[in-house]
Nucleic acid binder design. Structure first.
Lengths: 210, 210
DNA sequence: GAAAAAAGTTGAACGCATTCATTTTTACAG
DNA sequence: CTGTAAAAATGAATGCGTTCAACTTTTTTC
Protein backbone atom coordinates (compact mmCIF):
# COMPACT_ATOMS: atom_id res chain seq x y z
CA UNK A 1 0.00 0.00 0.00
CA UNK A 2 2.17 2.81 1.30
CA UNK A 3 5.55 2.59 -0.40
CA UNK A 4 8.91 2.37 1.35
CA UNK A 5 9.71 4.93 3.99
CA UNK A 6 13.45 4.74 3.49
CA UNK A 7 15.72 5.29 0.50
CA UNK A 8 16.81 8.50 -1.14
CA UNK A 9 13.62 8.91 -3.09
CA UNK A 10 11.29 8.37 -0.15
CA UNK A 11 13.26 10.78 2.03
CA UNK A 12 13.12 13.46 -0.60
CA UNK A 13 9.42 12.93 -0.97
CA UNK A 14 8.75 13.30 2.73
CA UNK A 15 10.92 16.39 2.88
CA UNK A 16 9.14 18.08 0.00
CA UNK A 17 5.77 17.18 1.42
CA UNK A 18 6.61 18.91 4.68
CA UNK A 19 8.23 21.77 2.86
CA UNK A 20 5.13 22.40 0.77
CA UNK A 21 2.80 22.17 3.75
CA UNK A 22 4.91 24.53 5.79
CA UNK A 23 5.20 26.99 2.91
CA UNK A 24 1.46 26.85 2.39
CA UNK A 25 0.63 27.22 6.06
CA UNK A 26 2.89 30.22 6.36
CA UNK A 27 1.52 31.87 3.25
CA UNK A 28 -2.08 31.17 4.22
CA UNK A 29 -1.43 32.82 7.54
CA UNK A 30 0.30 35.80 5.95
CA UNK A 31 -1.88 36.63 2.96
CA UNK A 32 -4.88 34.35 3.43
CA UNK A 33 -5.92 31.13 1.77
CA UNK A 34 -7.59 32.67 -1.23
CA UNK A 35 -4.85 35.18 -1.94
CA UNK A 36 -2.11 32.56 -1.63
CA UNK A 37 -0.98 31.58 -5.11
CA UNK A 38 0.07 28.06 -5.97
CA UNK A 39 3.10 29.55 -7.73
CA UNK A 40 4.14 31.24 -4.52
CA UNK A 41 3.74 28.10 -2.45
CA UNK A 42 5.70 26.08 -4.99
CA UNK A 43 8.36 28.74 -5.19
CA UNK A 44 8.67 28.96 -1.39
CA UNK A 45 9.13 25.18 -1.31
CA UNK A 46 11.66 25.41 -4.17
CA UNK A 47 9.60 23.26 -6.47
CA UNK A 48 7.75 23.80 -9.75
CA UNK A 49 4.00 24.20 -9.97
CA UNK A 50 3.70 20.83 -11.67
CA UNK A 51 5.52 19.16 -8.81
CA UNK A 52 3.18 20.71 -6.30
CA UNK A 53 0.38 18.76 -7.94
CA UNK A 54 2.34 15.55 -7.55
CA UNK A 55 2.21 16.05 -3.81
CA UNK A 56 -1.25 17.54 -3.32
CA UNK A 57 -4.29 16.96 -5.48
CA UNK A 58 -5.27 20.58 -5.20
CA UNK A 59 -5.07 23.67 -3.05
CA UNK A 60 -7.89 22.44 -0.82
CA UNK A 61 -5.93 19.39 0.22
CA UNK A 62 -3.38 21.65 1.86
CA UNK A 63 -6.13 23.28 3.85
CA UNK A 64 -7.53 19.89 4.76
CA UNK A 65 -4.19 18.84 6.20
CA UNK A 66 -4.17 21.90 8.43
CA UNK A 67 -7.83 21.55 9.42
CA UNK A 68 -7.19 17.95 10.40
CA UNK A 69 -4.32 18.90 12.69
CA UNK A 70 -6.41 21.58 14.32
CA UNK A 71 -9.50 19.47 14.91
CA UNK A 72 -7.54 16.48 16.13
CA UNK A 73 -5.95 18.65 18.76
CA UNK A 74 -9.40 19.96 19.70
CA UNK A 75 -10.72 16.40 19.98
CA UNK A 76 -7.77 15.44 22.16
CA UNK A 77 -8.39 18.32 24.55
CA UNK A 78 -12.13 17.68 24.50
CA UNK A 79 -11.68 14.04 25.44
CA UNK A 80 -9.97 15.11 28.65
CA UNK A 81 -12.97 17.22 29.62
CA UNK A 82 -15.43 14.44 28.84
CA UNK A 83 -13.33 11.98 30.85
CA UNK A 84 -13.55 14.11 34.00
CA UNK A 85 -16.29 16.71 33.66
CA UNK A 86 -17.13 19.28 36.35
CA UNK A 87 -20.08 18.46 38.60
CA UNK A 88 -22.53 21.12 37.47
CA UNK A 89 -24.21 20.58 34.08
CA UNK A 90 -23.85 24.08 32.75
CA UNK A 91 -20.26 24.36 33.88
CA UNK A 92 -19.36 21.03 32.32
CA UNK A 93 -20.79 22.05 28.96
CA UNK A 94 -19.19 25.44 29.14
CA UNK A 95 -15.88 23.77 29.86
CA UNK A 96 -16.10 21.49 26.86
CA UNK A 97 -17.23 24.20 24.47
CA UNK A 98 -14.59 26.63 25.72
CA UNK A 99 -11.99 23.98 25.11
CA UNK A 100 -13.16 23.67 21.53
CA UNK A 101 -13.19 27.38 20.87
CA UNK A 102 -9.91 28.06 22.65
CA UNK A 103 -8.06 25.60 20.42
CA UNK A 104 -9.68 26.61 17.17
CA UNK A 105 -7.25 29.26 15.98
CA UNK A 106 -3.86 27.61 16.52
CA UNK A 107 -3.15 26.66 12.90
CA UNK A 108 -6.17 28.15 11.16
CA UNK A 109 -7.31 31.72 10.70
CA UNK A 110 -10.95 32.73 10.48
CA UNK A 111 -10.63 33.02 6.73
CA UNK A 112 -9.26 29.49 6.49
CA UNK A 113 -12.15 28.22 8.61
CA UNK A 114 -14.65 29.98 6.38
CA UNK A 115 -13.08 28.48 3.30
CA UNK A 116 -13.05 25.01 4.82
CA UNK A 117 -16.69 25.25 5.87
CA UNK A 118 -17.70 26.59 2.48
CA UNK A 119 -15.89 23.88 0.55
CA UNK A 120 -17.24 21.14 2.77
CA UNK A 121 -20.78 22.30 2.06
CA UNK A 122 -20.38 23.04 -1.62
CA UNK A 123 -18.71 19.81 -2.71
CA UNK A 124 -20.11 17.03 -0.56
CA UNK A 125 -18.76 14.23 -2.75
CA UNK A 126 -15.22 15.35 -2.27
CA UNK A 127 -12.61 13.73 0.00
CA UNK A 128 -12.33 17.14 1.63
CA UNK A 129 -15.99 17.24 2.55
CA UNK A 130 -16.06 13.64 3.75
CA UNK A 131 -13.08 14.13 6.01
CA UNK A 132 -14.38 17.43 7.30
CA UNK A 133 -17.72 15.95 8.26
CA UNK A 134 -16.07 12.97 9.78
CA UNK A 135 -14.21 15.29 12.13
CA UNK A 136 -17.43 17.18 12.75
CA UNK A 137 -19.20 13.96 13.65
CA UNK A 138 -16.50 13.13 16.17
CA UNK A 139 -16.99 16.47 17.86
CA UNK A 140 -20.75 15.98 17.95
CA UNK A 141 -20.25 12.54 19.45
CA UNK A 142 -18.14 14.07 22.19
CA UNK A 143 -20.83 16.56 23.12
CA UNK A 144 -23.39 13.79 23.23
CA UNK A 145 -21.05 11.61 25.28
CA UNK A 146 -20.71 14.38 27.84
CA UNK A 147 -24.48 14.77 28.09
CA UNK A 148 -24.87 11.03 28.57
CA UNK A 149 -22.21 10.99 31.26
CA UNK A 150 -23.94 13.81 33.09
CA UNK A 151 -27.25 12.03 32.75
CA UNK A 152 -25.81 8.74 34.01
CA UNK A 153 -24.50 10.62 37.01
CA UNK A 154 -27.97 12.01 37.68
CA UNK A 155 -27.21 15.64 36.86
CA UNK A 156 -29.64 15.70 33.93
CA UNK A 157 -33.31 14.65 33.95
CA UNK A 158 -33.60 10.97 33.06
CA UNK A 159 -36.38 11.64 30.56
CA UNK A 160 -34.26 14.06 28.49
CA UNK A 161 -33.11 12.70 25.12
CA UNK A 162 -29.36 13.09 25.44
CA UNK A 163 -28.71 11.99 21.85
CA UNK A 164 -31.07 14.55 20.36
CA UNK A 165 -30.02 17.33 22.71
CA UNK A 166 -26.37 16.62 22.04
CA UNK A 167 -26.90 17.11 18.32
CA UNK A 168 -28.95 20.24 18.86
CA UNK A 169 -26.28 21.68 21.09
CA UNK A 170 -23.58 20.78 18.62
CA UNK A 171 -25.47 22.40 15.76
CA UNK A 172 -25.84 25.50 17.87
CA UNK A 173 -22.20 25.72 18.83
CA UNK A 174 -21.31 25.15 15.22
CA UNK A 175 -23.60 27.95 14.07
CA UNK A 176 -22.12 30.24 16.69
CA UNK A 177 -18.62 29.39 15.53
CA UNK A 178 -19.59 30.07 11.93
CA UNK A 179 -20.82 33.52 12.92
CA UNK A 180 -17.55 34.03 14.76
CA UNK A 181 -15.51 33.07 11.70
CA UNK A 182 -17.59 35.43 9.60
CA UNK A 183 -16.92 38.45 11.77
CA UNK A 184 -13.24 39.29 11.65
CA UNK A 185 -13.53 41.63 14.66
CA UNK A 186 -15.50 39.26 16.91
CA UNK A 187 -13.47 38.01 19.90
CA UNK A 188 -13.47 34.57 21.47
CA UNK A 189 -15.05 36.13 24.56
CA UNK A 190 -17.93 37.48 22.48
CA UNK A 191 -18.36 34.09 20.84
CA UNK A 192 -18.60 32.41 24.22
CA UNK A 193 -21.00 35.03 25.55
CA UNK A 194 -23.32 34.51 22.62
CA UNK A 195 -23.27 30.75 22.90
CA UNK A 196 -23.41 30.52 26.68
CA UNK A 197 -26.56 32.63 26.78
CA UNK A 198 -28.33 30.03 24.69
CA UNK A 199 -26.66 27.17 26.56
CA UNK A 200 -28.11 28.58 29.77
CA UNK A 201 -31.60 28.40 28.28
CA UNK A 202 -31.12 24.69 27.62
CA UNK A 203 -29.43 23.68 30.85
CA UNK A 204 -32.22 25.44 32.72
CA UNK A 205 -34.60 22.93 31.18
CA UNK A 206 -32.61 19.76 31.70
CA UNK A 207 -30.38 20.20 34.76
CA UNK A 208 -31.50 18.51 37.96
CA UNK A 209 -29.06 19.92 40.51
CA UNK A 210 -28.32 23.53 39.70
CA UNK B 1 -31.50 57.32 -7.92
CA UNK B 2 -33.15 54.72 -10.06
CA UNK B 3 -33.34 56.02 -13.61
CA UNK B 4 -36.43 56.31 -15.74
CA UNK B 5 -38.65 53.27 -16.14
CA UNK B 6 -40.01 54.32 -19.51
CA UNK B 7 -38.37 55.04 -22.84
CA UNK B 8 -36.85 52.71 -25.35
CA UNK B 9 -33.62 52.28 -23.45
CA UNK B 10 -35.20 51.48 -20.10
CA UNK B 11 -37.58 48.97 -21.68
CA UNK B 12 -34.70 47.20 -23.37
CA UNK B 13 -32.79 47.13 -20.16
CA UNK B 14 -35.63 45.57 -18.20
CA UNK B 15 -36.19 43.03 -20.95
CA UNK B 16 -32.56 41.95 -21.04
CA UNK B 17 -32.42 41.79 -17.29
CA UNK B 18 -35.34 39.37 -17.25
CA UNK B 19 -33.96 37.51 -20.22
CA UNK B 20 -30.61 36.95 -18.53
CA UNK B 21 -32.21 35.86 -15.28
CA UNK B 22 -34.50 33.44 -17.02
CA UNK B 23 -31.68 32.03 -19.13
CA UNK B 24 -29.54 31.60 -16.03
CA UNK B 25 -32.30 30.03 -14.00
CA UNK B 26 -33.03 27.55 -16.76
CA UNK B 27 -29.39 26.68 -17.26
CA UNK B 28 -28.73 26.38 -13.53
CA UNK B 29 -31.61 23.95 -13.32
CA UNK B 30 -30.45 21.97 -16.31
CA UNK B 31 -26.70 21.67 -15.82
CA UNK B 32 -26.21 23.10 -12.34
CA UNK B 33 -24.87 26.42 -11.11
CA UNK B 34 -21.21 25.53 -11.29
CA UNK B 35 -21.37 23.92 -14.71
CA UNK B 36 -23.36 26.79 -16.19
CA UNK B 37 -21.02 28.97 -18.24
CA UNK B 38 -21.41 32.73 -18.44
CA UNK B 39 -20.96 32.40 -22.21
CA UNK B 40 -23.94 30.06 -22.37
CA UNK B 41 -26.14 32.32 -20.27
CA UNK B 42 -25.19 35.33 -22.37
CA UNK B 43 -25.73 33.38 -25.57
CA UNK B 44 -29.13 32.12 -24.43
CA UNK B 45 -30.12 35.70 -23.66
CA UNK B 46 -28.72 36.82 -27.05
CA UNK B 47 -26.18 39.12 -25.50
CA UNK B 48 -22.39 39.22 -25.33
CA UNK B 49 -20.41 38.20 -22.26
CA UNK B 50 -19.40 41.80 -21.66
CA UNK B 51 -23.02 42.88 -21.67
CA UNK B 52 -23.89 40.26 -19.10
CA UNK B 53 -21.53 42.04 -16.72
CA UNK B 54 -23.34 45.31 -17.35
CA UNK B 55 -26.47 43.73 -15.90
CA UNK B 56 -25.07 41.54 -13.13
CA UNK B 57 -21.93 42.15 -11.16
CA UNK B 58 -21.04 38.48 -11.26
CA UNK B 59 -22.44 34.99 -11.50
CA UNK B 60 -23.33 34.94 -7.82
CA UNK B 61 -25.69 37.87 -8.23
CA UNK B 62 -27.86 35.75 -10.47
CA UNK B 63 -28.04 33.12 -7.78
CA UNK B 64 -28.85 35.76 -5.19
CA UNK B 65 -31.80 36.94 -7.24
CA UNK B 66 -33.18 33.41 -7.30
CA UNK B 67 -32.46 32.76 -3.62
CA UNK B 68 -34.27 35.96 -2.73
CA UNK B 69 -37.39 34.93 -4.63
CA UNK B 70 -37.36 31.54 -2.96
CA UNK B 71 -36.86 32.76 0.58
CA UNK B 72 -39.37 35.57 0.24
CA UNK B 73 -41.97 33.04 -0.77
CA UNK B 74 -41.02 30.90 2.21
CA UNK B 75 -41.31 33.90 4.53
CA UNK B 76 -44.72 34.70 3.09
CA UNK B 77 -46.00 31.18 3.71
CA UNK B 78 -44.37 31.09 7.13
CA UNK B 79 -46.08 34.31 8.20
CA UNK B 80 -49.46 32.68 7.63
CA UNK B 81 -48.54 29.85 10.00
CA UNK B 82 -47.28 32.23 12.68
CA UNK B 83 -50.43 34.33 12.36
CA UNK B 84 -52.69 31.35 13.12
CA UNK B 85 -50.67 28.51 14.61
CA UNK B 86 -52.16 25.14 15.61
CA UNK B 87 -52.94 24.69 19.30
CA UNK B 88 -50.34 22.07 20.21
CA UNK B 89 -46.74 23.28 20.52
CA UNK B 90 -45.08 20.46 18.66
CA UNK B 91 -47.64 20.54 15.87
CA UNK B 92 -47.30 24.29 15.48
CA UNK B 93 -43.54 24.08 15.13
CA UNK B 94 -43.79 21.14 12.79
CA UNK B 95 -46.23 23.10 10.67
CA UNK B 96 -43.92 26.10 10.38
CA UNK B 97 -40.84 24.06 9.63
CA UNK B 98 -42.64 21.89 7.09
CA UNK B 99 -43.79 25.05 5.37
CA UNK B 100 -40.21 26.19 5.09
CA UNK B 101 -38.93 22.91 3.77
CA UNK B 102 -41.83 22.35 1.39
CA UNK B 103 -41.18 25.66 -0.36
CA UNK B 104 -37.42 25.37 -0.51
CA UNK B 105 -37.00 23.71 -3.88
CA UNK B 106 -39.30 25.72 -6.13
CA UNK B 107 -36.66 27.81 -7.88
CA UNK B 108 -33.50 26.38 -6.37
CA UNK B 109 -31.91 22.95 -6.62
CA UNK B 110 -29.88 21.39 -3.83
CA UNK B 111 -26.71 22.29 -5.66
CA UNK B 112 -27.78 25.93 -5.89
CA UNK B 113 -28.55 25.96 -2.18
CA UNK B 114 -25.16 24.50 -1.39
CA UNK B 115 -23.45 27.11 -3.50
CA UNK B 116 -25.44 29.91 -1.90
CA UNK B 117 -24.65 28.69 1.62
CA UNK B 118 -20.99 28.26 0.77
CA UNK B 119 -20.63 31.71 -0.75
CA UNK B 120 -22.48 33.37 2.09
CA UNK B 121 -20.03 31.83 4.56
CA UNK B 122 -16.88 32.29 2.56
CA UNK B 123 -17.27 35.96 1.64
CA UNK B 124 -19.02 37.66 4.52
CA UNK B 125 -18.25 41.20 3.35
CA UNK B 126 -20.07 40.66 0.09
CA UNK B 127 -23.53 41.98 -0.80
CA UNK B 128 -24.44 38.37 -1.42
CA UNK B 129 -23.59 37.33 2.10
CA UNK B 130 -25.26 40.33 3.69
CA UNK B 131 -28.47 39.74 1.83
CA UNK B 132 -28.39 36.02 2.49
CA UNK B 133 -28.00 36.50 6.21
CA UNK B 134 -30.64 39.16 6.24
CA UNK B 135 -33.10 36.63 4.84
CA UNK B 136 -31.83 34.07 7.33
CA UNK B 137 -32.40 36.49 10.19
CA UNK B 138 -35.98 37.04 9.06
CA UNK B 139 -36.61 33.31 9.16
CA UNK B 140 -35.07 33.02 12.61
CA UNK B 141 -37.25 35.90 13.78
CA UNK B 142 -40.30 34.06 12.54
CA UNK B 143 -39.44 30.93 14.51
CA UNK B 144 -38.90 33.02 17.61
CA UNK B 145 -42.16 34.88 17.02
CA UNK B 146 -44.02 31.59 16.90
CA UNK B 147 -42.46 30.46 20.16
CA UNK B 148 -43.41 33.74 21.79
CA UNK B 149 -46.97 33.46 20.53
CA UNK B 150 -47.25 29.95 21.92
CA UNK B 151 -45.79 31.09 25.20
CA UNK B 152 -48.16 34.08 25.42
CA UNK B 153 -51.00 31.67 24.89
CA UNK B 154 -49.77 29.52 27.75
CA UNK B 155 -48.73 26.50 25.69
CA UNK B 156 -45.06 26.87 26.66
CA UNK B 157 -43.62 27.16 30.17
CA UNK B 158 -43.39 30.82 31.17
CA UNK B 159 -39.82 30.43 32.43
CA UNK B 160 -38.52 29.15 29.05
CA UNK B 161 -36.35 31.66 27.16
CA UNK B 162 -38.25 31.91 23.87
CA UNK B 163 -35.64 34.10 22.24
CA UNK B 164 -32.78 31.72 22.96
CA UNK B 165 -34.79 28.61 22.14
CA UNK B 166 -35.99 30.15 18.87
CA UNK B 167 -32.40 30.72 17.78
CA UNK B 168 -31.36 27.25 18.84
CA UNK B 169 -34.25 25.73 16.95
CA UNK B 170 -33.48 27.80 13.90
CA UNK B 171 -29.84 26.79 13.96
CA UNK B 172 -30.93 23.19 14.18
CA UNK B 173 -33.39 23.37 11.30
CA UNK B 174 -30.73 25.14 9.30
CA UNK B 175 -28.18 22.44 10.02
CA UNK B 176 -30.71 19.79 9.06
CA UNK B 177 -31.43 21.59 5.81
CA UNK B 178 -27.73 21.85 5.06
CA UNK B 179 -27.39 18.09 5.49
CA UNK B 180 -30.39 17.67 3.21
CA UNK B 181 -28.82 19.88 0.53
CA UNK B 182 -25.62 17.89 0.81
CA UNK B 183 -27.24 14.53 0.17
CA UNK B 184 -28.66 14.48 -3.33
CA UNK B 185 -30.69 11.34 -2.61
CA UNK B 186 -32.24 12.52 0.69
CA UNK B 187 -35.97 13.19 0.46
CA UNK B 188 -37.98 15.96 2.09
CA UNK B 189 -39.67 13.27 4.20
CA UNK B 190 -36.31 12.07 5.51
CA UNK B 191 -35.31 15.65 6.26
CA UNK B 192 -38.45 16.19 8.29
CA UNK B 193 -38.04 12.90 10.12
CA UNK B 194 -34.53 13.82 11.13
CA UNK B 195 -35.50 17.26 12.33
CA UNK B 196 -38.77 16.32 13.98
CA UNK B 197 -37.05 13.72 16.15
CA UNK B 198 -34.91 16.47 17.65
CA UNK B 199 -37.82 18.89 17.78
CA UNK B 200 -39.70 16.35 19.88
CA UNK B 201 -36.87 16.29 22.39
CA UNK B 202 -37.19 20.05 22.82
CA UNK B 203 -40.96 20.36 22.92
CA UNK B 204 -41.00 17.61 25.54
CA UNK B 205 -39.05 19.99 27.76
CA UNK B 206 -41.00 23.19 27.16
CA UNK B 207 -44.59 22.27 26.28
CA UNK B 208 -47.19 22.70 29.01
CA UNK B 209 -50.27 21.07 27.47
CA UNK B 210 -49.26 17.98 25.48
C1' DG C 1 27.86 -0.91 -15.04
C1' DA C 2 24.80 -0.38 -19.18
C1' DA C 3 20.20 -0.53 -20.73
C1' DA C 4 15.46 -0.49 -19.79
C1' DA C 5 11.77 0.63 -16.84
C1' DA C 6 9.71 3.30 -13.35
C1' DA C 7 9.09 7.43 -10.86
C1' DG C 8 9.34 12.23 -10.56
C1' DT C 9 9.85 17.00 -12.43
C1' DT C 10 8.72 20.67 -15.35
C1' DG C 11 6.51 24.75 -17.47
C1' DA C 12 3.61 25.72 -21.25
C1' DA C 13 -1.26 25.25 -22.37
C1' DC C 14 -6.25 25.08 -21.09
C1' DG C 15 -10.75 26.51 -19.17
C1' DC C 16 -13.36 29.90 -17.25
C1' DA C 17 -14.85 34.13 -14.52
C1' DT C 18 -14.03 38.74 -14.81
C1' DT C 19 -12.09 43.31 -16.72
C1' DC C 20 -11.40 46.92 -19.94
C1' DA C 21 -10.33 49.67 -24.09
C1' DT C 22 -12.81 50.30 -28.18
C1' DT C 23 -16.89 50.61 -30.99
C1' DT C 24 -21.83 51.11 -31.56
C1' DT C 25 -26.23 52.81 -30.29
C1' DT C 26 -29.39 56.01 -28.21
C1' DA C 27 -30.80 60.49 -26.46
C1' DC C 28 -31.06 65.11 -26.92
C1' DA C 29 -29.84 70.20 -27.89
C1' DG C 30 -29.94 73.61 -31.37
C1' DC D 1 -32.09 66.71 -39.08
C1' DT D 2 -27.36 66.90 -37.58
C1' DG D 3 -23.69 66.92 -34.25
C1' DT D 4 -22.42 65.60 -29.87
C1' DA D 5 -22.59 63.69 -25.34
C1' DA D 6 -24.01 59.85 -22.64
C1' DA D 7 -24.97 55.03 -22.23
C1' DA D 8 -24.48 50.45 -23.54
C1' DA D 9 -22.41 46.59 -26.06
C1' DT D 10 -18.54 44.04 -27.38
C1' DG D 11 -14.89 40.53 -27.47
C1' DA D 12 -10.08 40.22 -26.74
C1' DA D 13 -6.97 40.21 -22.74
C1' DT D 14 -5.93 38.90 -17.83
C1' DG D 15 -5.38 36.07 -13.76
C1' DC D 16 -5.25 31.78 -11.67
C1' DG D 17 -6.09 26.77 -10.60
C1' DT D 18 -5.28 22.68 -12.81
C1' DT D 19 -3.64 19.36 -16.58
C1' DC D 20 -0.46 17.15 -19.52
C1' DA D 21 3.14 15.81 -22.85
C1' DA D 22 8.04 16.02 -22.86
C1' DC D 23 12.18 15.58 -20.22
C1' DT D 24 15.33 13.99 -16.05
C1' DT D 25 16.55 11.27 -12.48
C1' DT D 26 16.46 7.11 -9.87
C1' DT D 27 15.85 2.23 -9.55
C1' DT D 28 15.93 -2.31 -11.27
C1' DT D 29 17.50 -5.97 -14.19
C1' DC D 30 20.89 -8.89 -16.22
Amino acid sequence: MTGPTTGLRAKQKARRNRSLLKAASTLFGQVGYEAARIDSIAEAAEVSVGTFYNYYENKAELLLAIVTMEVEEVLHQGAAVVAAPPEAVELALRRLISTYYDHSLVYLTKEMWRTAMAMAIQHPETPFSRRYHDLDAQLAAQVTALLRALQARGSIRAEADAGALGLILFNDLNAAFTQFAMQEEMTLAALKDSLFARLHAVTGLIALRP
